[in-house]
Amino acid sequence: MKKLRNYDSAPGCSMEAALHIMGGKWKGVILYHLFKDGTLRFSELQRFLPSINQRLLTKQLRELEEDGLIIRQVYPVVPPKVEYSLSDEGRELNKLVLDLSIWGRNWLERRGLKTAVEEDIEELKKVLGDPK
């Protein structure tokens, strides 16, 4: 059964609407890298997300574009060049994405775990524009 992308009726609550948009396993990570690293080409996103296959990355990017969170810019050159950037609506998620990243970091540290790539949280706050 195909997942419904647009609501045929009103969602039950605002949280349901938000989770419907952000519900993909990789969507938050894609947004995180677009916040942190700016406009990225498809191949750059693939390098940041080595565990995702090309088909799923394409699907997640299409859904984010359809939902108005990212902008896909296609350049008419050979080989094809496609860049992804955040839309104004996508940039509104800046604080949410940063807070989730910090929460995830703290959760890992409480358990004595680390990420594969060391991140400087203070630098990340600066990059993502957190006023704290």
Rank of each mutant, 00 (worst) to 15 (best):
Met1Phe: 15
Met1Gly: 15
Met1Ser: 15
Lys2Ile: 12
Leu4His: 12
Leu4Thr: 14
Arg5Asp: 13
Arg5Ser: 14
Arg5Tyr: 13
Asp8Ile: 10
Ala10Thr: 12
Gly12Thr: 13
Cys13Trp: 07
Cys13Leu: 09
Glu16Asp: 14
Ala17Tyr: 09
Leu19Ala: 03
Ile21Thr: 11
Met22Arg: 09
Gly24Lys: 07
Gly24Gln: 11
Lys25Arg: 12
Trp26Asn: 02
Lys27Ala: 10
Lys27Phe: 07
Ile30Pro: 04
Ile30Thr: 07
Leu31Glu: 00
Tyr32Val: 04
His33Met: 04
Lys36Ser: 14
Asp37Glu: 06
Asp37Gln: 07
Gly38Met: 01
Gly38Gln: 01
Leu40Asn: 05
Phe42Arg: 03
Ser43Pro: 00
Glu44Trp: 01
Leu45Glu: 01
Leu45His: 00
Leu45Pro: 01
Gln46Ile: 00
Arg47Gln: 10
Phe48Cys: 06
Leu49Cys: 02
Leu49Asp: 03
Pro50Lys: 00
Ser51Ile: 05
Ile52Gln: 01
Ile52Val: 04
Gln54Thr: 07
Arg55Thr: 08
Leu56Val: 13
Leu57Asp: 01
Thr58Ala: 01
Gln60Pro: 09
Arg62Tyr: 11
Arg62Gly: 09
Leu64His: 06
Leu64Thr: 05
Leu64Asp: 06
Glu66Arg: 08
Asp67His: 00
Leu69Trp: 02
Ile70Lys: 00
Ile71Met: 04
Gln73Lys: 14
Gln73Arg: 14
Val74Cys: 00
Pro76Lys: 00
Val77Gly: 00
Val78Ser: 13
Pro79Ile: 02
Val82Cys: 02
Ser85Met: 04
Ser85Ala: 02
Leu86Met: 02
Leu86Arg: 06
Leu86Val: 07
Leu86Lys: 01
Ser87Asn: 06
Asp88Val: 13
Glu89Leu: 08
Glu92Asp: 15
Glu92Cys: 14
Leu93Ile: 04
Leu93Tyr: 04
Asn94Glu: 13
Asn94Arg: 15
Lys95Tyr: 15
Lys95Pro: 11
Val97Tyr: 05
Leu98Tyr: 11
Leu100Met: 15
Ser101Glu: 11
Ser101Ile: 14
Ile102Ala: 04
Ile102Pro: 02
Gly104Arg: 11
Asn106Glu: 15
Asn106Tyr: 14
Trp107Arg: 14
Trp107Phe: 09
Trp107Cys: 12
Leu108Arg: 09
Leu108Lys: 15
Glu109His: 03
Arg110Gly: 09
Arg111Asn: 12
Gly112His: 01
Leu113Asn: 02
Lys114Val: 05
Thr115Asn: 09
Thr115His: 03
Thr115Ala: 12
Ala116Ile: 03
Glu118Ile: 04
Glu118Arg: 02
Asp120Phe: 03
Asp120Asn: 02
Asp120Ile: 04
Glu122Leu: 06
Glu122Thr: 07
Glu123Gln: 04
Leu124Glu: 00
Leu124Ala: 05
Leu128Met: 11
Leu128Asp: 07
Asp130Arg: 10
Asp130Phe: 10
Pro131Tyr: 12
